[in-house]
């Protein structure tokens, strides 16, 4: 990463009609060559932020700068360097993928057909069909090709893997890693933890229009844990788990024991090996839970 700020917002806010505050004083920086995850539940303000960056909507207050240029006054120059995939991609149903690619490419000043064909091949996408004939996943692939075909300096991807099958998700991750390796920047919104873990360098979490935190993913993953629920054959089973390092939020209800567990699973399995276990469920936490855990630890360390 070169450290140059590609995207910077300062106190960026958006209030819609009827005083609906969609985004509240967002201050954020994304650096060149970074894959930046922008996370939050539905209605958190992710898409509003992206639409502000693209000048599709105008801020109620605050500023946004991309490549050092003002997102309002210099939007045209900015958009020449951006590839964008909206969360809800609506294309012209009666046009073929190739016709749309040529149109978008010509507005950009030219189409790099070898790149288009290479992307289509990797995503196993047929360019010749009309949009209305494509499945949701295939429409998403077309959206990715449209966003990536000109090798933009900044990719803004809103829920990029929504509708893609797991194999295609892996190929998408590869494409993002390649973009990063070429020094390009990726700003993507997501609510999928595994996706964020796989490709993002840093993540920001947004809730109700307010930025909750920005953190490096590798640091965040130290706070990773699993929800473990074990049903023992006997009511007194699992008592030894409460003192096991890595166990927290320990609860027992008869033969049922539930707790959070962080760390390698070998010690846990060693304890369970001596017990009579009927069932065991291991669930991943939500990203928000990991954030909360991370900040709990941090605050605990500081105090």
């Amino acid at each position: 990463m070169s450290g140059t700020n590609i995207l910077q917002t300062e106190s960026l806010s958006k209030v819609y009609a009827k005083n609906v505050r969609a985004l509240d004083s967002l201050s954020l920086t994304v650096r060149q060559g970074e894959v930046f995850g922008y996370l939050g539940p539905n209605g958190a303000g992710k898409t509003t932020t992206i639409r502000l960056l693209l000048d599709l909507i105008r801020p109620s207050s605050g500023t946004a700068r991309l490549f050092g240029l003002d997102a309002r006054r210099e939007s045209l120059a900015i958009r020449g360097r951006i590839g964008y995939l909206p969360a809800e991609l609506n294309l012209w149903e009666r046009q073929t993928a190739l016709q749309i690619i040529r149109y978008v490419g010509s507005v950009r000043g030219g189409v790099d057909m070898p790149t288009v064909r290479a992307l289509a091949e990797r995503l196993q996408f047929d360019l010749t069909k009309r949009v209305k004939a494509y499945s949701t996943g295939n429409k998403r692939k077309l959206g990715l090709i449209l966003a990536m075909m000109n090798k933009p300096d900044l990719l803004i991807l809103d829920e990029p893997t929504s509708g893609l099958d797991p194999l295609m998700q892996q190929i998408f991750y590869e494409l993002v890693r390649e973009a990063r390796a070429e020094g390009r920047t990726v700003f993507l919104s997501s609510h999928i933890l595994s996706e964020v873990q796989a490709i993002c360098d840093r993540v920001a979490i947004l809730r109700s229009g307010v930025l909750q935190a920005v953190q490096r993913v590798d640091e965040l993953m130290h706070a990773d844990f699993r929800h473990v629920t074990v049903r023992f054959a006997h009511a007194d089973g699992g008592a030894a788990l409460s003192t096991l390092p890595g166990v927290s939020s320990f609860r027992r209800d008869g033969a049922l024991t539930a707790f959070q567990y962080a760390g390698a699973f070998d010690p846990l399995l060693a304890v369970l090996a001596g017990q009579s276990v009927v069932t065991m469920d291991i669930d991943k936490p939500s990203l928000e839970e990991i954030f909360l855990k991370f900040y709990d630890h941090k605050e605990g360390d500081e105090s």
């Binding site: 693209l54 000048d55 599709l56 045209l76 964008y84 294309l91 978008v104």
Partner: peptide, 14 residues
């Protein structure tokens, strides 16, 4: 109305 304008206006065209 159909949401296609977002795609168009993300391109370098005023």
């Amino acid at each position: 109305d159909r949401g296609q304008m977002d795609v168009l206006l993300s391109l370098p065209v005023t």
